[in-house]
Design a protein around this nucleic acid. Structure first.
Length: 275
DNA sequence: CTTACCGCCTGTCGGC
DNA sequence: TGCCGACAGGCGGTAA
């Protein structure tokens, strides 16, 4: 499940082979992803050079000069570099054949991903209202403190709200709250400045470390070269419900918040406020 | 404005 | 062995 570290890892893995290459051909096998792939996408991108590959939140941005090809991997998307002659497998929905002969192939089992075009990517409706990048200086304790003052929702849901900060999915939200020693159900407006500071630091640390490790591979995630991530070895709570806390040995508890599994330690993550 | 919840989609797994 | 529901979850949409 690609979250920010996984998308960033994919970006870095395909960068050297893609920048400066011309997109020779777009092969569309299934256009019905999360949103339909624009029918005129081929004429927008074919013959144009990839000037840069950037990332905003969990969106990959292929800068072509006259506009941007936007790719989101959704839940199950894998973007890998293959030879164009490589036999197509189930859920291989899109190919980008580059002038070097390399083919960028998008496989997305659940089709929660997207392939879109934007004349000016930052003005695209999906990108226009996003909050700050978690690893940018702009995301700091003061911002989180200020933004949380009038919010009664659980802190875990707040840090997963892309208007507040982007790129923090379920795995890393669980992990960051554990490291910050904050109970996930704490109302956001009950956090003090120091807790906001701890949480911001934990989010940055967890994401940076996950990027260093090439992301988290629970099952299918691979980078552009087919390489798995290794951060799953460093997960303290996600997927460890009922197992002993690695700090205090207490049995980890599980609950659901916003239809997502939430795992935490009732000893390390003190609940100062009851529901 | 905020909060709560739905549903998109496929593969896997546990229970009976 | 087969069937069925729950779950995985990013994220826009909608209802209250």
């Amino acid at each position: 499940m690609p979250e920010l570290p996984e998308v960033e890892t994919v970006r870095r893995s395909i960068l050297p082979s893609c920048e400066g290459q011309t997109i020779e051909k777009l092969v569309l096998r299934r256009p019905d992803l999360r949103w339909p792939i624009p029918i005129d996408l081929a004429q927008q991108i074919e013959g144009h050079k990839i000037l840069a590959i950037k990332r905003r939140a969990k969106y990959l941005l292929f800068e072509l000069g006259h506009g941007t090809l936007i790719i989101h991997l959704g839940m199950s998307g894998v973007l890998k570099m293959v030879q164009p002659t490589m036999p197509v497998t189930k859920h291989d929905h899109v190919d980008l054949v580059l002038s070097s002969g390399i083919c960028l192939r998008l496989n997305d089992t659940r089709r929660f991903g997207a392939v879109l075009w934007a004349d000016a990517s930052l003005l695209h409706p999906l990108l226009a209202k996003l909050g700050p990048e978690p690893l940018a200086e702009e995301f700091n304790a003061k911002l989180l403190f200020d933004q949380s003052r009038k919010r009664s929702i659980a802190i875990k849901l707040l840090i997963m709200d892309s208007h507040i900060v982007v790129g923090v999915g379920n795995i890393y939200a669980n992990e960051a709250l554990f490291h910050a020693k904050i109970h996930p159900e704490t109302p956001a407006n009950k956090l003090n400045r120091q807790q906001c500071e701890s949480l911001v630091n934990a989010i940055k640390q967890v994401l940076n470390r996950a990027i260093e490790q090439g992301g988290t591979t629970l099952k299918d995630y691979r980078d552009g070269k087919g390489k798995p991530g290794y951060f799953q070895q460093e997960l303290f709570v996600y997927g460890r419900s009922g197992k002993p806390c690695l700090i205090c040995d207490n049995s980890l508890k599980e609950t659901r918040m916003g239809q997502r599994t939430t795992v935490f330690c009732t000893e390390c993550q003190v609940q100062l406020y009851k529901k």
